[in-house]
Design a protein around this nucleic acid. Structure first.
Lengths: 154, 154
DNA sequence: CCGAAATACTCAGTGCGCTGACTAATTGAC
DNA sequence: GTCAATTAGTCAGCGCACTGAGTATTTCGG
């Protein structure tokens, strides 16, 4: 008794949504390169030479996870990783030619996949969908760091 | 060049949404019991005595993952697992008293958390949000099993 | 200049999520 | 009744995601 209807729980739905996306990704985009890995490649297309931490920030991965993702991409030869001569703490990242090619190829497939994924929604619904997810995520993200409390009441 | 704007990619947003939810869950609901674990408890409140595979189906977890989740819940003493005397392949699951109590407690907190999570949206937006996620997930899920092709054209 | 604080990264540990290969039990065709 | 197919669950392996502890490097206060 007193069980809950999970289909009204955004967290549960978010998990299901991600699983659905994973499924579509592996069938329509790539079985080798994952969606987070593609996100990293994409970040480095825009800003080559970023350090590891910043890439993680761009794509929304913490220090540990980004380290693993990068190690896999490096192993596959899609990425070069060098110590920053100016700051020995940093690792600077750059796509290899192979990484560039892979990004281009997957970008095309990803666009197709997104169309299929969103096909059940009308064009207006698609826009609303993306906007609502963004707003909810951003707001929750904001709760993370109390962002230097404007006035420490009391 | 030719980089893509990930904020228009539902998969990327889905991942961020789940991370945001994870964050809120651990701070507002429980650091011990995870959201998928709660989903399992919840399924067994409604239908005690379900077998492992069916529970997985109810909450959307594959055979391997559900096995791990159940093993953790069993270790914590929230679940009892017994071989089905009628069918020796099955494991039948049932909440312990402790499991019942835990479910009740977390159900309350989860409701509060959902309110906070969805607070950035108006009431109508919240309804739309949940409905759109459901439609997209269900549709993608449907692509999984071609559902016995009606007519094998050709 | 020197020591403390901050910063970038690594490592160990936990948990979710998937696949493919395997085992054990049941069911069904014959 | 026997053998093949199906079904439930386990196990190994990969990958994402987080925390907390530890290391190396830089920066900053004095």
């Amino acid at each position: 008794m007193a069980a809950v209807d999970l289909s009204t729980h955004p967290g549960h739905l978010a998990r299901r949504l991600q699983q659905a996306h994973y499924l579509l990704w592996t069938t329509m985009v790539s079985e080798e390169i994952t969606s987070p890995q593609f996100a990293v490649l994409n970040a480095l297309v825009t800003e080559p030479g970023l350090d590891q931490r910043t890439v993680g920030e761009r794509v929304g991965l913490d220090r540990s996870t980004i380290a693993e993702v990068i190690s896999r991409l490096t192993r596959r030869g899609l990425l070069d990783k060098v110590r920053d001569p100016q700051d020995g703490r940093r690792s600077l990242l750059r796509l290899t030619d192979e990484g560039q090619r892979t990004h281009r190829k997957l970008a095309v497939r990803t666009a197709r996949m997104n169309q299929v994924f969103l096909a059940p929604l009308s064009a207006e619904e698609q826009a609303v969908f993306l906007e609502l997810i963004r707003r909810v995520s951003d707001a929750a993200e904001g709760l993370r760091n109390p962002a230097e409390p404007l006035v420490t009441q009391g």
